[in-house]
Write a protein that binds this DNA or RNA. Structure first.
Lengths: 262, 262
DNA sequence: CGATGTATTGACCAGCTTCAAGTAACGTGG
DNA sequence: CCACGTTACTTGAAGCTGGTCAATACATCG
Protein backbone atom coordinates (compact mmCIF):
# COMPACT_ATOMS: atom_id res chain seq x y z
CA UNK A 1 0.00 0.00 0.00
CA UNK A 2 1.45 3.34 -1.04
CA UNK A 3 1.42 6.32 1.26
CA UNK A 4 -0.45 9.39 0.06
CA UNK A 5 1.68 12.52 -0.48
CA UNK A 6 2.55 14.28 2.75
CA UNK A 7 1.88 17.90 3.55
CA UNK A 8 4.99 20.00 4.30
CA UNK A 9 4.50 19.90 8.07
CA UNK A 10 4.10 16.17 7.97
CA UNK A 11 7.24 15.75 5.91
CA UNK A 12 9.30 17.68 8.42
CA UNK A 13 8.03 15.62 11.31
CA UNK A 14 8.28 12.24 9.69
CA UNK A 15 11.78 11.12 10.47
CA UNK A 16 11.86 7.47 9.53
CA UNK A 17 10.97 5.45 6.50
CA UNK A 18 7.22 5.24 6.21
CA UNK A 19 6.46 7.29 9.30
CA UNK A 20 3.53 9.62 9.28
CA UNK A 21 2.32 12.49 11.35
CA UNK A 22 -0.43 11.87 13.86
CA UNK A 23 -2.83 14.00 11.83
CA UNK A 24 -2.63 11.53 8.99
CA UNK A 25 -2.52 8.41 11.13
CA UNK A 26 -4.39 5.71 9.25
CA UNK A 27 -6.02 4.49 12.46
CA UNK A 28 -7.58 7.83 13.28
CA UNK A 29 -9.84 7.89 10.26
CA UNK A 30 -11.42 4.58 11.18
CA UNK A 31 -14.96 4.70 12.57
CA UNK A 32 -13.94 2.97 15.79
CA UNK A 33 -11.74 5.87 16.88
CA UNK A 34 -12.46 9.43 17.85
CA UNK A 35 -11.26 11.95 15.30
CA UNK A 36 -9.38 14.17 17.72
CA UNK A 37 -9.30 17.96 17.64
CA UNK A 38 -6.39 19.71 15.91
CA UNK A 39 -4.95 21.02 19.18
CA UNK A 40 -5.07 17.50 20.60
CA UNK A 41 -3.18 16.15 17.62
CA UNK A 42 -0.55 18.85 18.06
CA UNK A 43 0.08 17.85 21.67
CA UNK A 44 0.26 14.16 20.81
CA UNK A 45 2.58 14.87 17.91
CA UNK A 46 4.84 16.81 20.23
CA UNK A 47 5.19 13.84 22.55
CA UNK A 48 5.93 11.34 19.81
CA UNK A 49 9.54 10.24 19.64
CA UNK A 50 9.24 8.09 16.56
CA UNK A 51 8.13 4.70 15.41
CA UNK A 52 9.63 1.29 15.83
CA UNK A 53 9.21 -2.10 14.26
CA UNK A 54 9.54 -5.45 16.03
CA UNK A 55 9.40 -9.08 15.01
CA UNK A 56 7.33 -11.73 16.71
CA UNK A 57 8.87 -12.68 20.02
CA UNK A 58 10.69 -9.41 20.65
CA UNK A 59 9.86 -7.49 23.82
CA UNK A 60 8.40 -4.00 24.01
CA UNK A 61 8.58 -4.03 27.78
CA UNK A 62 10.63 -6.45 29.83
CA UNK A 63 8.92 -7.89 32.88
CA UNK A 64 10.42 -6.04 35.84
CA UNK A 65 12.16 -3.32 33.82
CA UNK A 66 12.60 -0.02 35.62
CA UNK A 67 12.26 2.53 32.84
CA UNK A 68 9.77 1.20 30.35
CA UNK A 69 8.45 3.50 27.64
CA UNK A 70 4.99 4.32 26.32
CA UNK A 71 3.66 3.13 22.99
CA UNK A 72 0.63 3.07 20.80
CA UNK A 73 0.35 -0.04 18.69
CA UNK A 74 -0.03 0.85 15.02
CA UNK A 75 -0.03 -2.54 13.36
CA UNK A 76 0.30 -6.15 14.46
CA UNK A 77 -0.45 -8.08 17.65
CA UNK A 78 1.19 -8.10 21.06
CA UNK A 79 0.32 -9.34 24.53
CA UNK A 80 0.79 -8.31 28.12
CA UNK A 81 1.79 -11.10 30.49
CA UNK A 82 2.91 -11.82 34.04
CA UNK A 83 4.86 -14.76 35.40
CA UNK A 84 5.04 -16.56 38.70
CA UNK A 85 8.51 -17.15 40.10
CA UNK A 86 8.36 -20.83 39.19
CA UNK A 87 7.75 -20.07 35.53
CA UNK A 88 4.00 -20.35 35.22
CA UNK A 89 2.93 -17.65 32.79
CA UNK A 90 -0.39 -15.84 32.40
CA UNK A 91 -1.30 -13.66 29.45
CA UNK A 92 -3.22 -10.66 30.80
CA UNK A 93 -4.49 -9.26 27.52
CA UNK A 94 -3.94 -9.20 23.82
CA UNK A 95 -3.00 -5.87 22.27
CA UNK A 96 -4.27 -4.78 18.87
CA UNK A 97 -3.73 -1.68 16.71
CA UNK A 98 -4.84 1.46 18.52
CA UNK A 99 -4.10 0.11 21.99
CA UNK A 100 -2.06 2.30 24.32
CA UNK A 101 0.77 0.40 25.98
CA UNK A 102 2.64 1.02 29.20
CA UNK A 103 0.18 3.04 31.23
CA UNK A 104 0.37 0.81 34.29
CA UNK A 105 4.16 0.83 34.11
CA UNK A 106 4.40 4.58 34.53
CA UNK A 107 2.42 4.47 37.75
CA UNK A 108 4.70 2.05 39.57
CA UNK A 109 8.43 1.71 40.11
CA UNK A 110 9.16 -1.45 38.20
CA UNK A 111 7.21 -2.82 35.26
CA UNK A 112 4.51 -5.05 36.64
CA UNK A 113 4.14 -7.01 33.43
CA UNK A 114 5.95 -7.74 30.22
CA UNK A 115 4.80 -6.86 26.74
CA UNK A 116 5.93 -8.98 23.81
CA UNK A 117 5.20 -8.90 20.08
CA UNK A 118 3.14 -11.82 18.78
CA UNK A 119 3.53 -10.84 15.12
CA UNK A 120 5.65 -8.35 13.26
CA UNK A 121 4.41 -5.03 14.56
CA UNK A 122 4.80 -1.30 14.28
CA UNK A 123 4.35 1.05 17.21
CA UNK A 124 4.55 4.73 18.05
CA UNK A 125 6.93 5.57 20.87
CA UNK A 126 6.27 8.46 23.27
CA UNK A 127 8.29 10.38 25.83
CA UNK A 128 8.44 8.80 29.23
CA UNK A 129 6.53 11.60 30.90
CA UNK A 130 3.85 11.66 28.24
CA UNK A 131 1.09 10.62 30.62
CA UNK A 132 1.64 13.65 32.80
CA UNK A 133 2.25 15.91 29.82
CA UNK A 134 -1.09 14.92 28.30
CA UNK A 135 -2.88 15.94 31.48
CA UNK A 136 -0.93 19.17 31.83
CA UNK A 137 -1.26 20.31 28.24
CA UNK A 138 -4.90 19.55 27.57
CA UNK A 139 -7.54 18.31 30.04
CA UNK A 140 -9.45 16.57 27.25
CA UNK A 141 -6.40 14.42 26.55
CA UNK A 142 -5.99 13.67 30.23
CA UNK A 143 -9.57 12.53 30.25
CA UNK A 144 -8.87 10.32 27.27
CA UNK A 145 -6.03 8.65 29.15
CA UNK A 146 -8.32 8.01 32.09
CA UNK A 147 -10.91 6.65 29.70
CA UNK A 148 -8.39 4.23 28.24
CA UNK A 149 -7.21 3.13 31.67
CA UNK A 150 -10.78 2.58 32.86
CA UNK A 151 -11.58 0.66 29.70
CA UNK A 152 -8.61 -1.62 30.23
CA UNK A 153 -9.97 -2.19 33.70
CA UNK A 154 -13.34 -3.25 32.32
CA UNK A 155 -11.69 -5.65 29.89
CA UNK A 156 -9.62 -7.03 32.74
CA UNK A 157 -12.81 -7.57 34.72
CA UNK A 158 -14.22 -9.57 31.83
CA UNK A 159 -11.08 -11.69 31.87
CA UNK A 160 -11.43 -12.27 35.61
CA UNK A 161 -15.02 -13.35 35.03
CA UNK A 162 -13.88 -15.77 32.33
CA UNK A 163 -11.13 -17.32 34.41
CA UNK A 164 -13.22 -17.51 37.54
CA UNK A 165 -16.57 -18.65 36.27
CA UNK A 166 -16.44 -19.84 32.66
CA UNK A 167 -15.58 -23.39 31.59
CA UNK A 168 -12.77 -24.03 29.13
CA UNK A 169 -14.93 -23.90 26.01
CA UNK A 170 -16.90 -20.91 27.29
CA UNK A 171 -13.63 -19.08 27.91
CA UNK A 172 -12.40 -19.79 24.44
CA UNK A 173 -15.69 -18.75 22.91
CA UNK A 174 -15.59 -15.49 24.87
CA UNK A 175 -12.07 -14.78 23.66
CA UNK A 176 -12.91 -15.44 20.02
CA UNK A 177 -16.00 -13.24 20.11
CA UNK A 178 -14.15 -10.44 21.85
CA UNK A 179 -11.25 -10.55 19.40
CA UNK A 180 -13.63 -10.57 16.47
CA UNK A 181 -15.37 -7.46 17.74
CA UNK A 182 -12.09 -5.65 18.29
CA UNK A 183 -10.67 -6.67 14.92
CA UNK A 184 -13.68 -5.88 12.80
CA UNK A 185 -13.10 -2.16 13.25
CA UNK A 186 -9.63 -2.48 11.76
CA UNK A 187 -8.73 -2.77 8.08
CA UNK A 188 -7.56 -6.03 6.55
CA UNK A 189 -8.28 -8.03 9.65
CA UNK A 190 -11.82 -9.16 9.13
CA UNK A 191 -12.95 -9.78 5.59
CA UNK A 192 -16.01 -11.74 4.50
CA UNK A 193 -16.10 -14.20 7.39
CA UNK A 194 -12.31 -14.49 7.47
CA UNK A 195 -10.48 -13.18 10.51
CA UNK A 196 -6.77 -12.82 11.15
CA UNK A 197 -5.71 -15.19 13.94
CA UNK A 198 -1.99 -15.52 14.64
CA UNK A 199 -2.24 -17.01 18.14
CA UNK A 200 -0.56 -20.31 18.94
CA UNK A 201 -2.05 -22.96 21.18
CA UNK A 202 0.52 -22.03 23.82
CA UNK A 203 -0.68 -18.42 23.76
CA UNK A 204 -4.31 -19.48 23.89
CA UNK A 205 -3.55 -21.69 26.88
CA UNK A 206 -1.71 -18.90 28.67
CA UNK A 207 -4.63 -16.54 28.19
CA UNK A 208 -7.18 -19.13 29.25
CA UNK A 209 -5.24 -20.14 32.34
CA UNK A 210 -5.22 -23.76 31.21
CA UNK A 211 -2.65 -26.36 30.26
CA UNK A 212 -1.57 -26.53 26.64
CA UNK A 213 -3.17 -29.95 26.25
CA UNK A 214 -6.53 -28.87 27.54
CA UNK A 215 -6.57 -25.58 25.65
CA UNK A 216 -5.98 -27.65 22.56
CA UNK A 217 -8.83 -30.00 23.40
CA UNK A 218 -11.19 -27.06 23.83
CA UNK A 219 -10.03 -25.62 20.52
CA UNK A 220 -10.56 -28.91 18.69
CA UNK A 221 -14.01 -29.19 20.18
CA UNK A 222 -15.06 -25.79 18.86
CA UNK A 223 -13.63 -26.70 15.45
CA UNK A 224 -15.27 -30.13 15.43
CA UNK A 225 -18.64 -28.66 16.33
CA UNK A 226 -18.38 -26.05 13.60
CA UNK A 227 -18.04 -22.94 15.75
CA UNK A 228 -14.63 -22.23 14.28
CA UNK A 229 -13.38 -22.88 10.76
CA UNK A 230 -9.64 -22.88 10.15
CA UNK A 231 -9.15 -21.20 6.77
CA UNK A 232 -5.36 -21.11 6.86
CA UNK A 233 -2.69 -21.30 9.57
CA UNK A 234 -3.22 -17.63 10.42
CA UNK A 235 -6.83 -17.21 9.50
CA UNK A 236 -10.12 -18.47 10.88
CA UNK A 237 -13.83 -17.92 10.35
CA UNK A 238 -16.57 -17.73 12.97
CA UNK A 239 -19.88 -18.71 11.42
CA UNK A 240 -22.78 -18.45 13.89
CA UNK A 241 -21.08 -15.65 15.77
CA UNK A 242 -24.18 -14.64 17.77
CA UNK A 243 -24.68 -18.21 18.93
CA UNK A 244 -21.02 -18.38 19.88
CA UNK A 245 -21.53 -15.28 22.01
CA UNK A 246 -24.48 -17.00 23.67
CA UNK A 247 -22.32 -20.04 24.33
CA UNK A 248 -19.89 -17.75 26.16
CA UNK A 249 -22.80 -16.10 28.04
CA UNK A 250 -21.86 -12.79 26.45
CA UNK A 251 -24.47 -10.16 25.56
CA UNK A 252 -25.10 -9.77 21.85
CA UNK A 253 -24.35 -7.51 20.19
CA UNK A 254 -21.42 -6.48 22.34
CA UNK A 255 -21.63 -2.85 23.50
CA UNK A 256 -19.14 -0.62 21.75
CA UNK A 257 -18.22 3.04 21.64
CA UNK A 258 -15.63 5.02 19.68
CA UNK A 259 -12.48 5.21 21.71
CA UNK A 260 -9.82 7.88 21.93
CA UNK A 261 -6.51 7.35 20.20
CA UNK A 262 -3.33 8.65 21.80
CA UNK B 1 -15.20 8.25 68.63
CA UNK B 2 -15.78 11.96 69.05
CA UNK B 3 -15.07 14.40 66.26
CA UNK B 4 -12.58 17.14 67.00
CA UNK B 5 -13.95 20.70 66.89
CA UNK B 6 -14.47 21.94 63.33
CA UNK B 7 -13.03 25.10 61.87
CA UNK B 8 -15.63 27.66 60.69
CA UNK B 9 -15.26 26.72 57.01
CA UNK B 10 -15.60 23.05 57.84
CA UNK B 11 -18.71 23.66 59.90
CA UNK B 12 -20.39 25.46 57.04
CA UNK B 13 -19.63 22.67 54.59
CA UNK B 14 -20.56 19.78 56.82
CA UNK B 15 -24.22 19.25 56.13
CA UNK B 16 -25.06 15.95 57.77
CA UNK B 17 -24.54 14.40 61.15
CA UNK B 18 -20.88 13.54 61.52
CA UNK B 19 -19.85 14.77 58.09
CA UNK B 20 -16.57 16.49 57.70
CA UNK B 21 -14.92 18.62 55.09
CA UNK B 22 -12.38 17.05 52.79
CA UNK B 23 -9.62 19.11 54.39
CA UNK B 24 -10.18 17.32 57.67
CA UNK B 25 -10.86 13.90 56.21
CA UNK B 26 -9.44 11.36 58.64
CA UNK B 27 -8.11 9.24 55.77
CA UNK B 28 -6.02 12.01 54.31
CA UNK B 29 -3.72 12.31 57.28
CA UNK B 30 -2.75 8.64 57.09
CA UNK B 31 0.72 7.87 55.75
CA UNK B 32 -0.64 5.71 52.95
CA UNK B 33 -2.33 8.66 51.25
CA UNK B 34 -1.01 11.76 49.58
CA UNK B 35 -1.71 14.93 51.55
CA UNK B 36 -3.24 16.89 48.68
CA UNK B 37 -2.68 20.57 47.99
CA UNK B 38 -5.21 23.12 49.27
CA UNK B 39 -6.45 23.96 45.76
CA UNK B 40 -6.97 20.26 45.10
CA UNK B 41 -9.01 19.89 48.27
CA UNK B 42 -11.14 22.86 47.25
CA UNK B 43 -12.00 21.26 43.92
CA UNK B 44 -12.80 17.92 45.50
CA UNK B 45 -14.91 19.60 48.17
CA UNK B 46 -16.83 21.39 45.44
CA UNK B 47 -17.75 18.12 43.79
CA UNK B 48 -18.85 16.39 46.96
CA UNK B 49 -22.59 15.98 47.31
CA UNK B 50 -22.61 14.47 50.77
CA UNK B 51 -22.06 11.26 52.62
CA UNK B 52 -24.14 8.16 52.90
CA UNK B 53 -24.28 5.14 55.11
CA UNK B 54 -25.23 1.61 54.07
CA UNK B 55 -25.69 -1.70 55.82
CA UNK B 56 -24.12 -4.97 54.74
CA UNK B 57 -25.88 -6.31 51.66
CA UNK B 58 -27.11 -2.98 50.34
CA UNK B 59 -26.03 -1.92 46.86
CA UNK B 60 -24.00 1.14 45.98
CA UNK B 61 -24.25 0.37 42.29
CA UNK B 62 -26.73 -2.01 40.74
CA UNK B 63 -25.34 -4.33 38.08
CA UNK B 64 -26.57 -2.92 34.77
CA UNK B 65 -27.77 0.42 36.18
CA UNK B 66 -27.67 3.32 33.74
CA UNK B 67 -26.84 6.28 35.94
CA UNK B 68 -24.56 5.09 38.68
CA UNK B 69 -22.83 7.64 40.87
CA UNK B 70 -19.26 8.11 42.06
CA UNK B 71 -18.08 7.42 45.58
CA UNK B 72 -15.08 7.29 47.79
CA UNK B 73 -15.30 4.69 50.50
CA UNK B 74 -14.69 6.24 53.92
CA UNK B 75 -15.23 3.31 56.23
CA UNK B 76 -16.20 -0.34 55.88
CA UNK B 77 -15.85 -2.99 53.19
CA UNK B 78 -17.55 -3.43 49.81
CA UNK B 79 -16.96 -5.49 46.70
CA UNK B 80 -17.32 -5.15 42.95
CA UNK B 81 -18.82 -8.17 41.19
CA UNK B 82 -20.13 -9.39 37.86
CA UNK B 83 -22.56 -12.18 37.10
CA UNK B 84 -23.12 -14.55 34.22
CA UNK B 85 -26.66 -14.81 32.92
CA UNK B 86 -27.12 -18.21 34.59
CA UNK B 87 -26.33 -16.80 38.01
CA UNK B 88 -22.65 -17.68 38.45
CA UNK B 89 -21.11 -14.75 40.28
CA UNK B 90 -17.53 -13.50 40.35
CA UNK B 91 -16.20 -10.96 42.80
CA UNK B 92 -13.82 -8.66 40.90
CA UNK B 93 -12.27 -6.85 43.83
CA UNK B 94 -12.73 -5.94 47.44
CA UNK B 95 -13.05 -2.24 48.24
CA UNK B 96 -11.56 -0.71 51.38
CA UNK B 97 -11.52 2.81 52.83
CA UNK B 98 -9.90 5.26 50.44
CA UNK B 99 -10.94 3.39 47.31
CA UNK B 100 -12.62 5.38 44.55
CA UNK B 101 -15.77 3.68 43.27
CA UNK B 102 -17.57 3.94 39.97
CA UNK B 103 -14.84 5.05 37.60
CA UNK B 104 -15.48 2.28 35.07
CA UNK B 105 -19.19 2.99 35.19
CA UNK B 106 -18.80 6.57 34.01
CA UNK B 107 -16.92 5.45 30.92
CA UNK B 108 -19.62 3.14 29.59
CA UNK B 109 -23.36 3.32 29.04
CA UNK B 110 -24.58 0.80 31.56
CA UNK B 111 -22.84 -0.26 34.74
CA UNK B 112 -20.58 -3.15 33.90
CA UNK B 113 -20.49 -4.43 37.45
CA UNK B 114 -22.35 -4.16 40.71
CA UNK B 115 -20.99 -2.79 43.96
CA UNK B 116 -22.41 -4.01 47.24
CA UNK B 117 -21.62 -3.30 50.89
CA UNK B 118 -20.07 -6.20 52.80
CA UNK B 119 -20.21 -4.44 56.16
CA UNK B 120 -21.83 -1.28 57.44
CA UNK B 121 -20.05 1.43 55.49
CA UNK B 122 -19.80 5.16 55.01
CA UNK B 123 -19.00 6.73 51.66
CA UNK B 124 -18.58 10.13 50.08
CA UNK B 125 -20.86 10.77 47.11
CA UNK B 126 -19.75 12.95 44.18
CA UNK B 127 -21.45 14.63 41.26
CA UNK B 128 -21.94 12.44 38.23
CA UNK B 129 -19.63 14.46 36.05
CA UNK B 130 -16.92 14.60 38.69
CA UNK B 131 -14.43 12.63 36.61
CA UNK B 132 -14.49 15.19 33.85
CA UNK B 133 -14.63 18.08 36.30
CA UNK B 134 -11.50 16.86 38.05
CA UNK B 135 -9.62 16.87 34.76
CA UNK B 136 -10.96 20.25 33.71
CA UNK B 137 -10.37 22.04 36.98
CA UNK B 138 -6.92 20.81 37.85
CA UNK B 139 -4.59 18.63 35.76
CA UNK B 140 -2.94 17.21 38.86
CA UNK B 141 -6.30 15.81 39.95
CA UNK B 142 -6.90 14.40 36.49
CA UNK B 143 -3.57 12.69 36.76
CA UNK B 144 -4.59 11.29 40.13
CA UNK B 145 -7.71 9.79 38.59
CA UNK B 146 -5.62 8.15 35.87
CA UNK B 147 -3.25 6.89 38.55
CA UNK B 148 -6.14 5.31 40.43
CA UNK B 149 -7.54 3.73 37.28
CA UNK B 150 -4.15 2.34 36.30
CA UNK B 151 -3.62 1.03 39.79
CA UNK B 152 -6.95 -0.77 39.68
CA UNK B 153 -5.78 -2.29 36.44
CA UNK B 154 -2.61 -3.59 38.07
CA UNK B 155 -4.60 -5.12 40.91
CA UNK B 156 -6.93 -6.68 38.36
CA UNK B 157 -3.91 -8.16 36.59
CA UNK B 158 -2.81 -9.74 39.85
CA UNK B 159 -6.28 -11.23 40.20
CA UNK B 160 -6.10 -12.64 36.66
CA UNK B 161 -2.74 -14.16 37.51
CA UNK B 162 -4.22 -15.74 40.62
CA UNK B 163 -7.24 -17.20 38.87
CA UNK B 164 -5.27 -18.40 35.88
CA UNK B 165 -2.14 -19.79 37.45
CA UNK B 166 -2.41 -20.16 41.20
CA UNK B 167 -3.84 -23.21 42.96
CA UNK B 168 -6.66 -22.84 45.46
CA UNK B 169 -4.45 -22.44 48.50
CA UNK B 170 -2.03 -20.17 46.69
CA UNK B 171 -4.93 -17.97 45.64
CA UNK B 172 -6.22 -17.71 49.15
CA UNK B 173 -2.75 -16.95 50.49
CA UNK B 174 -2.34 -14.21 47.90
CA UNK B 175 -5.66 -12.67 48.88
CA UNK B 176 -4.88 -12.69 52.58
CA UNK B 177 -1.45 -11.12 52.10
CA UNK B 178 -2.84 -8.47 49.79
CA UNK B 179 -5.68 -7.58 52.16
CA UNK B 180 -3.28 -7.40 55.08
CA UNK B 181 -1.06 -4.97 53.21
CA UNK B 182 -3.99 -2.78 52.25
CA UNK B 183 -5.48 -2.81 55.74
CA UNK B 184 -2.35 -2.13 57.70
CA UNK B 185 -2.30 1.46 56.46
CA UNK B 186 -5.74 2.06 57.95
CA UNK B 187 -6.61 2.69 61.58
CA UNK B 188 -8.30 0.06 63.76
CA UNK B 189 -7.98 -2.63 61.11
CA UNK B 190 -4.66 -4.20 61.93
CA UNK B 191 -3.61 -4.27 65.56
CA UNK B 192 -0.94 -6.47 67.11
CA UNK B 193 -1.30 -9.45 64.80
CA UNK B 194 -5.06 -9.07 64.66
CA UNK B 195 -6.70 -8.14 61.39
CA UNK B 196 -10.30 -7.28 60.61
CA UNK B 197 -11.80 -9.95 58.36
CA UNK B 198 -15.53 -9.79 57.70
CA UNK B 199 -15.62 -11.98 54.57
CA UNK B 200 -17.86 -15.02 54.43
CA UNK B 201 -16.90 -18.32 52.83
CA UNK B 202 -19.30 -17.54 50.00
CA UNK B 203 -17.52 -14.25 49.32
CA UNK B 204 -14.12 -15.92 49.48
CA UNK B 205 -15.30 -18.54 47.01
CA UNK B 206 -16.68 -15.91 44.65
CA UNK B 207 -13.40 -14.04 44.66
CA UNK B 208 -11.34 -17.20 44.21
CA UNK B 209 -13.49 -18.47 41.36
CA UNK B 210 -14.11 -21.73 43.22
CA UNK B 211 -17.05 -23.60 44.65
CA UNK B 212 -18.06 -22.81 48.21
CA UNK B 213 -17.05 -26.29 49.33
CA UNK B 214 -13.57 -26.09 47.92
CA UNK B 215 -12.95 -22.54 49.08
CA UNK B 216 -13.84 -23.77 52.52
CA UNK B 217 -11.47 -26.71 52.28
CA UNK B 218 -8.63 -24.38 51.25
CA UNK B 219 -9.46 -22.11 54.16
CA UNK B 220 -9.47 -24.98 56.62
CA UNK B 221 -6.15 -26.15 55.28
CA UNK B 222 -4.50 -22.78 55.90
CA UNK B 223 -6.00 -22.70 59.39
CA UNK B 224 -4.98 -26.28 60.17
CA UNK B 225 -1.42 -25.63 59.03
CA UNK B 226 -1.17 -22.52 61.16
CA UNK B 227 -1.02 -19.90 58.39
CA UNK B 228 -4.23 -18.33 59.64
CA UNK B 229 -5.51 -18.03 63.19
CA UNK B 230 -9.17 -17.25 63.74
CA UNK B 231 -9.29 -14.84 66.68
CA UNK B 232 -13.00 -14.13 66.51
CA UNK B 233 -15.72 -14.43 63.86
CA UNK B 234 -14.61 -11.17 62.27
CA UNK B 235 -10.95 -11.16 63.14
CA UNK B 236 -7.94 -13.24 62.12
CA UNK B 237 -4.19 -13.23 62.56
CA UNK B 238 -1.53 -14.06 60.01
CA UNK B 239 1.60 -15.26 61.78
CA UNK B 240 4.44 -16.02 59.38
CA UNK B 241 3.22 -13.41 56.91
CA UNK B 242 6.41 -13.39 54.81
CA UNK B 243 6.26 -17.16 54.41
CA UNK B 244 2.61 -16.88 53.46
CA UNK B 245 3.60 -14.43 50.74
CA UNK B 246 6.18 -16.92 49.53
CA UNK B 247 3.52 -19.64 49.47
CA UNK B 248 1.50 -17.40 47.17
CA UNK B 249 4.58 -16.68 45.05
CA UNK B 250 4.25 -13.01 45.91
CA UNK B 251 7.28 -10.74 46.27
CA UNK B 252 8.05 -9.69 49.83
CA UNK B 253 7.75 -7.05 50.97
CA UNK B 254 5.00 -6.01 48.60
CA UNK B 255 5.79 -2.80 46.72
CA UNK B 256 3.75 0.14 47.95
CA UNK B 257 3.47 3.85 47.29
CA UNK B 258 1.30 6.59 48.76
CA UNK B 259 -1.81 6.91 46.68
CA UNK B 260 -3.97 9.89 45.87
CA UNK B 261 -7.30 10.30 47.61
CA UNK B 262 -10.24 11.78 45.74
C1' DC C 1 19.22 -33.16 6.80
C1' DG C 2 19.13 -32.74 11.66
C1' DA C 3 17.31 -29.33 14.94
C1' DT C 4 13.88 -26.91 16.80
C1' DG C 5 9.25 -25.54 17.81
C1' DT C 6 4.30 -26.34 17.27
C1' DA C 7 0.25 -29.20 16.71
C1' DT C 8 -1.96 -33.44 18.12
C1' DT C 9 -3.46 -37.23 20.81
C1' DG C 10 -3.92 -40.92 24.49
C1' DA C 11 -3.60 -42.76 29.26
C1' DC C 12 -3.71 -41.83 33.76
C1' DC C 13 -4.26 -39.01 37.73
C1' DA C 14 -5.48 -34.97 40.75
C1' DG C 15 -7.95 -30.89 41.80
C1' DC C 16 -12.15 -29.26 41.99
C1' DT C 17 -17.41 -29.55 41.61
C1' DT C 18 -21.67 -31.39 42.82
C1' DC C 19 -24.72 -33.23 45.85
C1' DA C 20 -26.16 -34.26 50.17
C1' DA C 21 -26.50 -33.92 54.99
C1' DG C 22 -25.61 -32.37 59.47
C1' DT C 23 -24.26 -28.60 62.82
C1' DA C 24 -23.86 -24.08 64.75
C1' DA C 25 -25.22 -19.19 65.09
C1' DC C 26 -28.54 -15.74 64.90
C1' DG C 27 -32.82 -13.00 64.70
C1' DT C 28 -37.74 -12.90 65.34
C1' DG C 29 -42.18 -13.69 67.08
C1' DG C 30 -44.79 -15.89 70.55
C1' DC D 1 -37.14 -17.31 77.36
C1' DC D 2 -37.87 -20.59 73.89
C1' DA D 3 -39.43 -22.34 69.19
C1' DC D 4 -38.54 -21.66 64.78
C1' DG D 5 -36.73 -20.20 60.29
C1' DT D 6 -32.85 -18.68 58.08
C1' DT D 7 -28.20 -18.35 57.05
C1' DA D 8 -23.50 -19.61 57.39
C1' DC D 9 -20.32 -23.18 58.33
C1' DT D 10 -18.71 -27.94 57.90
C1' DT D 11 -17.81 -32.40 55.96
C1' DG D 12 -18.01 -36.78 53.10
C1' DA D 13 -18.64 -39.41 48.71
C1' DA D 14 -18.81 -39.68 43.86
C1' DG D 15 -17.76 -37.95 39.53
C1' DC D 16 -16.22 -34.61 36.03
C1' DT D 17 -12.95 -31.19 34.37
C1' DG D 18 -8.68 -30.31 33.53
C1' DG D 19 -3.42 -31.45 34.50
C1' DT D 20 0.66 -34.27 33.64
C1' DC D 21 3.36 -37.08 31.00
C1' DA D 22 4.63 -39.17 26.95
C1' DA D 23 4.76 -40.07 22.18
C1' DT D 24 4.00 -38.94 17.26
C1' DA D 25 3.44 -36.07 13.42
C1' DC D 26 4.40 -31.94 11.01
C1' DA D 27 6.38 -27.77 9.81
C1' DT D 28 10.16 -24.40 9.30
C1' DC D 29 14.90 -23.22 9.14
C1' DG D 30 19.71 -22.86 8.97
Amino acid sequence: MKNPPLAPLDRRLARLQGERACASCPLRSLPGFEAGKPEELDVIQGLKLGELQLSAGEALIQEGAMDSALFTLLDGWACRYRSLQDGRRQILSFLLPGDFIGLQQRMTDAAVHGVVALTTLRACRFKRDAVWALHRELPSLGYDVTWLAAREGVDGDEHVLSLGRRSATERLAALLVELHERLKGLPRHVEQEGMEFPLSQRQLADWMGLSLAHAHRSWRQLVRQGWVQVLSPQRIALPRLPELAALAHLPWPLPSAPRPLI
